[in-house]
Design a protein around this nucleic acid. Sequence first.
DNA 1: CTATTTTTGTACCTAACGGTATAATAATTA
DNA 2: TAATTATTATACCGTTAGGTACAAAAATAG
Lengths: 203, 203
Amino acid sequence: MSTAKPTKQRGRPPAFDHEEALEKALRVFWLRGYEGASMAELTEALGINRPSIYAAFGNKEELFRKALGKYLAGPVAYVAEAMNEPTSRQVVEKFLTKSAELLTNPNNPRGCMIVQGALSCGQGSELIQQELIAHRKGYEDALRQRFELAQKQGDLPNSVNASDLAKYVATIHQGMSVQATSGAPIEDLMAVVEVALKNWPAS
Amino acid sequence: MSTAKPTKQRGRPPAFDHEEALEKALRVFWLRGYEGASMAELTEALGINRPSIYAAFGNKEELFRKALGKYLAGPVAYVAEAMNEPTSRQVVEKFLTKSAELLTNPNNPRGCMIVQGALSCGQGSELIQQELIAHRKGYEDALRQRFELAQKQGDLPNSVNASDLAKYVATIHQGMSVQATSGAPIEDLMAVVEVALKNWPAS
DNA sequence: CTATTTTTGTACCTAACGGTATAATAATTA
DNA sequence: TAATTATTATACCGTTAGGTACAAAAATAG
């Protein structure tokens, strides 16, 4: 069967690019959080009319999820890369260093969208809140698994608890996100990373 | 001049206690954050009518500030106490341990109100956001000063940077607040504290 | 050229938001 | 008891929230 879609579409052509619009929505949600971002501000930022947003993305919740997808695939892609570093120490160093860069990058809103998107929220946003919690746990779990691998490979002592260590690194990352939102410059976050890594357990 | 106020007041007696009402408002703001807490939910929780709230506390912003005052004077009073510990190591141990207890206490909402009250927020809440940032910096600065004192007293090496160390501890605390909101039990936070303290610089 | 399809733009919906006018109520003072 | 004072309770204000009905517009298909 031929599912190759024809280049010529039937109706009136869309006046905006979905990916560009999502990129703009991402910036608003990143800055304001899920609840803090109003549809009015989003409409303004996307430069397209409200019914077009709803036709293209569903509703505010769906728009947030799709913008979050862009966030995961773009600015946060370094996390998966960091896991491929040869040793646990290098994994953490890369993860935290890249985090410090992202969290304070002047081209972005400050802080991490997964941390701040819906940390405290009103009664209507618990679903989004839970989804972000799940994402945070996912990253923490990836660290834990990587540390367990490191223990098998022998670059991390078996005496340490991989789960605790992962939670420690995740805690540092989340704290740095708060620090970035408070205005801490990258130098300060780098200093924190250095302190945090000063005594990394080595075999 | 006699400014001693008479025990008998003039008009209709208030039907609620200001301090109790503030305590209830505190719980709602603590759980929901500044924006996430609606006046409807606050009115419900306080059990008094809306005009009475406005008459007693001004408006939502003022109510938040007064509830925050209760938070600072009550649940968070341990921070000032922790500074009186004899050594910098003990200061941090007490600060972080007590934090872990508070952040996960089942009698409270999860997490720290100063961290989560208005981390990301909409356009109307930047003032509250800035005030909470100032409070976070205040605590961090208290740690820094305490560490500088410790260096003078000789229980902390002069080679370390007191400012960086304070930011490190504040980052751990703020990260633990996020972890608590994500559902981490106290044991996990205690384990993080242990890792964080494992190699505290000693003279 | 006409019919069909899809998106756009205007204008609007209901509900919830923070906040308040106003009158009834319950105490004290004279 | 009558006047005064402060608080309560009802009912409501204008604004903003997220979301949509509907017709005009711009393309393709026959």
